[in-house]
Design a protein around this nucleic acid. Structure first.
Lengths: 246, 246
DNA sequence: AAGTGGTCTAGACCACTGT
DNA sequence: CAGTGGTCTAGACCACTTG
């Protein structure tokens, strides 16, 4: 199965070559130009074809493997993974589906204040006990549908937050604009049932299932910049991941 | 902060060098020999120190970054990440904690049969409609505590499954022993509330929160080898991940 | 035996950060 | 400015799978 795949590489671009190549393959796969089961050319020929070195091409392939788009086997080759594993079950990923199709989620700020942090919050953020922190509580909706309640704690050092900026833009965008850059986060996903308060805010019956997400986010220096404790309606939200073996 | 870190590299070992190096660093970090915030030596000096090339050392560092143990910044250096983000909240990760501390989970097989697959199951496994597949339903417990109900569908081509082998060993171990190797999986994590049946099996009240996990697993040729639909008690189970930016 | 991906080397230049 | 990680090259040898 030969490749008539056209890839334009712009060596003047600030975008790394391996990223350009990976992106081109990803697009081709998602558009069906490289159907499932397709066997790709071997690494050496592909590298020649695109006039890049083999290590650079491999870096691109590594990315595709990590994203679950292709599978490699030593002695055999590289194959495009079937689409069924890239599809979501039931309407679970409505949230991502909608956002990816260009529908913007809206956010209303329920609470915006600074508080003296509880011990657990201070600990999570790596701050001394009883430090003052931002505390916010927001209701996220999509298309008029109430989706979840998000509660966040942030050190004052992230910069100036205002109710208005948070209504207009995502929390991370507001923070990024002030110079702190999100680097990684640790998340715990679980389940609970709606309390009376939560049920009323979300427009569901008390006792309805909710997905819980607790997240600590770090900036590029490894400093904690946010602790979030969120609940989402289980019928509208679920969490998807790809696991790799090694 | 200099490194008196001793790393023994065995060039005769079949274990790749980058893996040996990454593992040594990971162990040192987890044991506290490299405390949080510690700045590592630069890549070139580290490579010299361990007598490996810089690309090989970088491969090891990439692994540490992906696992959330260190953070790198261009122009600055590499730092060990604080431990608070590697710790789990509440007793949520009891399952992993227990397994990691050597307690073996036990499994009882509730149902073991072959059935003609429903359309959705066949689709998930990439099989023609109405193909015969294994169907199993198991109850997982830990320390006498009932933890979750696991329902799985597998193509007959994975090999011979028996009730006995499943009682004794994990499903994946049974499969692996027959030559098929797990390569990657796509997972969807959500929430629901216990039905009467589920509640009785798990020893909780109907309406209790449950964590749902749906998973499709692929072997190294990209063929689906398992579709699983599981529920776990939310008070005993949660799902943890690390997200990276890029 | 031929073909594949997996690992490794010894350089090079660049982009970014801090002083 | 010096020092760092980020990217890239052009090879080499090995381990594994398949015919």
């Amino acid at each position: 199965m030969p490749d008539d795949l056209q890839i334009d590489i712009d060596r003047g671009s600030p975008v790394p070559l391996y990223h350009q190549v990976a992106q081109a393959f990803e697009q081709a796969i998602r558009e069906g130009r490289l159907p499932p089961e397709t066997k790709l050319e071997n690494e050496i020929d592909l590298a020649k074809r695109y006039n890049i070195s083999r290590p650079t091409l491999r870096q691109a392939m590594d990315k595709l493997v990590r994203d679950g788009l292709v599978v490699r086997r030593r002695g055999v080759g590289t194959q495009v993974v079937g689409p069924r594993v890239r599809r979501s079950l039931k309407l679970s990923s409505l949230y991502n589906d909608l956002r990816d199709s260009g529908v913007q989620p809206t956010t209303s700020v329920l609470t915006f204040e600074t508080v003296v942090s509880a011990d657990e919050v201070a600990d999570r953020l790596g701050l001394p006990a009883e430090t003052e922190v931002y505390h916010l509580r927001r209701l996220r909706s999509i298309d008029g549908q109430r989706l979840g309640i998000m509660e966040n704690y942030l050190p004052l050092s992230v910069g100036t937050l205002t109710r208005e900026s948070l209504e207009q833009d995502g929390l991370y965008n507001v923070i990024r604009r002030q110079g702190t850059d999100f680097q990684m986060a640790h998340q715990t996903v679980g389940a609970t049932v709606a309390t009376a308060d939560q049920a009323e805010l979300l427009g569901v019956s008390p006792g309805s299932p909710l997905v819980t997400v607790q997240r600590t986010a770090l900036d590029s220096s490894g400093t904690a910049i946010e602790f979030g404790d969120h609940v989402y309606r289980a019928d509208l939200y679920s969490y998807e991941t790809t696991l790799m073996n090694r």
